[in-house]
Design a protein around this nucleic acid. Sequence first.
DNA 1: CATCTGACTTCAAATAATGAAGTTAGCGGT
DNA 2: ACCGCTAACTTCATTATTTGAAGTCAGATG
Lengths: 152, 152
Amino acid sequence: MDAMLLPANRSCPIARTLGVLGQKWNLLLLREAFLGRTKYAEFLRIGVPTATLGARLQDLVDAGLLTRHAYQEKGERARDEYLLTQAGRDAMPILAALIGWGETHLPPVTAYAMTTGDGRPVRLAFVDDTGTVVDADAVAIAKKPEGAATPG
Amino acid sequence: MDAMLLPANRSCPIARTLGVLGQKWNLLLLREAFLGRTKYAEFLRIGVPTATLGARLQDLVDAGLLTRHAYQEKGERARDEYLLTQAGRDAMPILAALIGWGETHLPPVTAYAMTTGDGRPVRLAFVDDTGTVVDADAVAIAKKPEGAATPG
DNA sequence: CATCTGACTTCAAATAATGAAGTTAGCGGT
DNA sequence: ACCGCTAACTTCATTATTTGAAGTCAGATG
């Protein structure tokens, strides 16, 4: 992730976010965190190599998505577990969007459900400032004028 | 993207989607497509190396997110342009989610705006089945029982 | 104090991305 | 028809990233 942050992409929040989350395994680690996993050994189970896991967990901590938190189980030595921060929790729409696309366009597997705390299913949608749902095909992404962006 | 599709991730729509969109540059190419770019030379301007661009464009076509469409400008030879398919357009929430996270957690740059056709700003939100907006922090991702998932 | 286990590091090998240098095809002019 | 020009790709050797195996380290157990 370097050429992706050339001048043309420097000011793009997509490119900048991918600089953090676009690394291989990061989004899958975040998925595990949302599923309640916190320990190194638990993250390992998804198939990430140890050499990679250490580095990615560190990246995620550095980027503020996870925090290390000491814990100790009875009869075990103290260890660190990895907990989602607010910034990490704020990444849920990214996972939700990936799930949504995958379930629509890469059938036939549907292994995840998104629900409220009381079990009602939810989906990701675009809403306008009145809270009204807007059809995704009616939404456009546009560059803002950004007059203040100086190359220095 | 191979170890990411181990048994533990095979049935995960996140991992499967990342198999297509997780490649370096793909999401940025999609961003350009949403901004209206269609030509090879236009995509090149974001800084992707030519050697990579050909491969990624092919991937995106193979995955059904873009289609090749012949066009010819006056006095120019016929060429192919790359147009978003419905599957490609359906990826907009992914970009929207990345933008949303980046604008919140990687200030101070804000270069994109999401709007409806008539210019009203929109944002991504979780809604329940009645169309009511639900706070993202109240949403949980859970594995479905997936009793019916057969390995064939 | 030797042994065991979980959590990491280190390192060489495999894989993927990159930049430079081709290659190909059609247009415009002659 | 031939030549040069340009856009759109390929190919290839270099460089960066990921990987698996093996090693390190700290504390609990015996």
